[in-house]
């Protein structure tokens, strides 16, 4: 797992994906920070974080798009799958590499907090709550992206499908509103990433939501392992 993790981290930076991701992430969060927080004269960061949902949604596929699709295309998966390591090690190595980069990007908010501390009082509980909310959201999204990357050989297809899939997850709230069958509505709301995330940004620390995001991450990583395993039996 360590070898794969290190290789992926290196590949993020040599391929430039890391730079694109970090640049766009800091740029957009900076814009939201400036207009949403500094511009409106508050130290309340919840607005900034709720806006960042969409940014995370569209940026995560850039991290995950080639994690497994490129391996399949270049036949390098043959090297991994015939090495004396388990499938979980392969998937987790890649997953944790993407997650590390995401945490790195996300940690830019600590720079904002220093600025805020200089200008006024930082509400650390909301800031940290939001920080972890985004972390959980990201960990779930990365697992979804990694799973979709395992299904194709084409990294562009992987990116587009991941974006669409994550967007559909985001739309679950609005869709649920127009569903008249109560049971279906309930189920859809249960899987609503956005409302769960919003709850966090409003300062509510809901343990079921944490469990939800971690479970989603686990389930999709599990599915990715299954996809790799199934390919051997094809």
């Amino acid at each position: 797992m360590g070898a794969i993790y290190r290789r992926e981290m290196g590949a993020f930076f040599t391929s430039g994906a890391a730079y694109v991701f970090l640049t766009v992430f800091t740029l957009l969060s900076g814009v939201f920070f400036f207009f949403g927080v500094i511009g409106s004269g508050t130290t309340e960061t919840s607005n900034m974080f709720s806006s960042m949902f969409m940014v995370v949604l569209f940026l995560i596929p850039i991290l995950t798009m080639k994690l497994l699709s490129e391996e399949k295309k270049n036949r390098t998966d043959q090297g991994l799958l015939t090495a004396p390591i388990g499938l979980w090690s392969i998937v987790m190595g890649k997953y944790l590499a993407a997650l590390t980069l995401f945490i790195l990007a996300e940690s830019v908010v600590f720079i904002y907090s220093i600025i805020l501390a200089y200008l006024g009082n930082v509400v650390w509980s909301t800031l940290l709550g939001n920080y972890f909310a985004m972390l959980f959201l990201g960990s779930a999204f990365i697992a979804v992206g990694l799973f979709i990357s395992s299904l194709t050989e084409n990294q562009m297809a992987s990116a587009v499908v991941s974006m669409v899939a994550l967007f559909v997850l985001y739309l679950f709230d609005s869709l649920a509103a127009s569903v008249s069958i109560e049971a279906v509505k309930k189920v859809m709301l249960m899987f609503s990433f956005y409302s769960r995330y919003l709850e966090f940004t409003q300062g509510v620390f809901n343990l079921t939501s944490v469990v939800f995001f971690v479970s989603v991450a686990f389930v999709f990583n599990f599915l990715t392992v299954r996809v790799l395993d199934k390919r051997r039996w094809g």
Binding site: A3, R6, Q78, A83
Partner: peptide, 28 residues
């Protein structure tokens, strides 16, 4: 087993040294 498939499983964005070190780690 040491395996050389029909198409060598090389990461073209790595240096030879980097790649061999990676395989060294991968094979523990």
């Amino acid at each position: 087993i040491g395996y050389l498939p029909e198409i060598p499983p090389l990461y073209v964005d790595m240096t030879v040294d980097g790649y061999l070190n990676f395989m060294y780690d991968l094979k523990k």
